[in-house]
């Protein structure tokens, strides 16, 4: 089974927010909930770079580990999904997630956050694939339609790659080889367990999911 992963190539990302609105539009995500966002470091200075971030669908997902109601599950493709019917909106997943992926429609006074929402890798949720119920709660299920995430498919510069970990790593590796720099893979160490942190010359060979 393919193991789904994201790569955001910071040498290419231009902070155009295409990925962000692609997600919003595809899934009708409401105002205030940001499944994906783009962050720019060294803003306005030479060396400025941007990274688009959403749920990384971690191998050993902290969100999943702390959920009091165990509503997360992992698909065969390594996508970390959750069941909104079970979610109690406690916010623990958001405390645990290194990437700030889990989102809530409300602000959390009295612990009232509403059901957690996060990037599904465009893979919907526990309801029947492509059903109306699934769409209403989780948005489209593109994977089931044989498509890849909307954000990555529409990325203006192809900075954001999403799909089979082996394939995206390969595309990225080729790119790194032609340009001879910018090999660091954003967040892979944290999300997928291999140390990259910043300095490995080429993306770590993606590990296959354990579960």
């Amino acid at each position: 089974m393919a193991r789904m992963k994201f790569i955001c190539d910071s040498e290419r990302c231009i902070e155009c927010n295409g990925c962000v609105t692609a997600c919003k539009a595809e899934h009708d995500v409401p105002w205030g909930v940001n499944r994906r966002r783009v962050v720019t470091l060294n803003d306005g200075q030479p060396g400025e770079k941007s990274i688009s971030v959403a749920c990384m669908h971690c191998s050993d997902a902290p969100c999943m580990a702390v959920c009091p109601v165990d509503c997360f599950y992992r698909t065969d493709e390594g996508v970390v999904l959750h069941d909104k019917d079970v979610c109690i909106g406690c916010g623990y997943c958001s405390y645990a997630c290194p990437f700030g992926a889990p989102q809530f429609p409300s602000n959390g006074t009295f612990g009232l956050r509403g059901k957690m929402d996060k990037c599904t890798f465009c893979a919907g949720g526990p309801e029947a694939n492509g059903s109306a119920a699934e769409f209403e709660k989780y948005g489209r299920n593109r994977l089931a339609e044989g498509k890849l995430p909307a954000c990555a498919e529409m990325c203006s510069t192809k900075a954001l790659l999403g799909g089979d970990g082996d394939v995206v790593a390969d595309i990225f590796r080729t790119r790194v080889l032609t340009r001879n720099k910018g090999s660091e893979v954003w967040g892979w160490g944290t999300a997928y367990g291999k140390p990259t942190g910043g300095a490995t010359p080429a993306p770590a060979k993606p590990e296959t999911s354990k579960s």
Binding site: S10, N42, Q45, P46, G47, K181, G182, G197, G198, A199
Partner: peptide, 17 residues
Amino acid sequence: TNAQRAKSQPGNNAPFW
């Protein structure tokens, strides 16, 4: 800074990371 590093060691983005 990342800008300085880009000059001193092109291709090395360690400060950015």
